[in-house]
Write a protein that binds this DNA or RNA. Structure first.
Length: 252
DNA sequence: AAGCTTAGCAACCGCACTTGG
DNA sequence: GCCAAGTGCGGTTGCTAAGCT
């Protein structure tokens, strides 16, 4: 059976968008609004796949996008949300007004991953990377550039104090063995309970609250965990990140 | 200065989910 | 309930600029 292709590939442009294409897309959406991405390219006079138009609009052309560098505060929000949600980039993006899932995903892979590794935190599990000198370790980082980078990032102050002990361990190990780099290892998976632990921390120590409530993704009154209901009575609807609950960004 | 490597990011691809007939 | 179309999402690729040798 199979699904029909989303567009006629033989007649569509690929690759980087031109200024003219951007202008056409923006003009069309301003005039007609978003919706029906499949028919949009034809209607807008674009030789592009509908998905491509959607992506271009969402990731680059939307007027409410916040371009430019991520702030330290945004970094920490992303790290915290990722520790709960994993690679749910769209959900994370929903918590950061003006940022897109693609942007956050790229930023994570290029900046934050390295930042966490330098802190001695496993970006996948958010648990401290233990000093496993007795275990087989493969390290590919040996040049002076990476050592320099590790040192400078260790000097950064970290407002969230997310993994202070791990950070200290990493930097002390660096001091002892400046040539020893532990960034990339082959190691058994870390413990799941370490990953789950911060949830209760962000829920103000109420370990029996559900993830949706602690993240402000669910209305506490409609949730069975009970805690959210209490909190929603007493709070004004802000979640642990200080963002208004329900303000889930551009898609909602 | 030239060639090579790396980092950053825009865009594509394919699968999953949702919706409507 | 089933099926096809439409849309959204996450992973991956490829291009470009910057940095290094």
């Amino acid at each position: 059976m199979g699904r029909s292709p989303c567009c006629e590939k033989a007649h569509t442009n690929k690759g980087a968008w031109t200024k003219e294409e951007d202008d056409k897309l923006v003009a069309y959406i301003r005039a007609h609004g978003e919706g029906c991405w499949r028919s949009l390219p034809k209607a807008a006079g674009l030789l592009r796949c509908g998905k491509s138009c959607r992506l271009r609009w969402i990731n680059y052309l939307r007027p409410d996008l916040k371009r430019g560098n991520f702030t330290e505060e945004e970094d920490e929000i992303i790290i915290k949300l990722h520790s709960h949600l994993g690679n749910k980039w769209s959900l994370i993006a929903g918590r950061l007004p003006g940022r897109t899932d693609n942007e956050i995903k790229n930023y994570w892979n290029t900046h934050i991953r390295r930042k966490l590794l330098n802190r001695g935190v496993d970006p996948a599990t958010h648990s401290p990377i233990k000093d496993r000198r007795d275990e087989p370790t493969i390290s590919f980082a040996s040049n002076s550039k990476e050592i320099k980078e590790t040192k400078s990032s260790a000097e950064l102050s970290f407002a969230g104090n997310l993994e202070d002990s791990a950070d200290a361990a990493a930097s002390s190990a660096q001091e002892r063995c400046p040539d020893l780099n532990l960034e990339l290892r082959i190691s058994p998976p870390s413990h799941q309970q370490q990953r789950a632990e911060p949830i209760s921390r962000f829920a103000g120590g109420k370990s029996d609250s559900c993830l949706e409530c602690s993240l402000g993704l669910k209305d506490g009154r409609n949730c069975g965990c009970g805690v959210g209901a209490i909190e929603s009575e007493t709070s004004v609807g802000y979640d642990f990140l200080g963002l208004k609950a329900g303000a889930l960004g551009y898609r909602s």
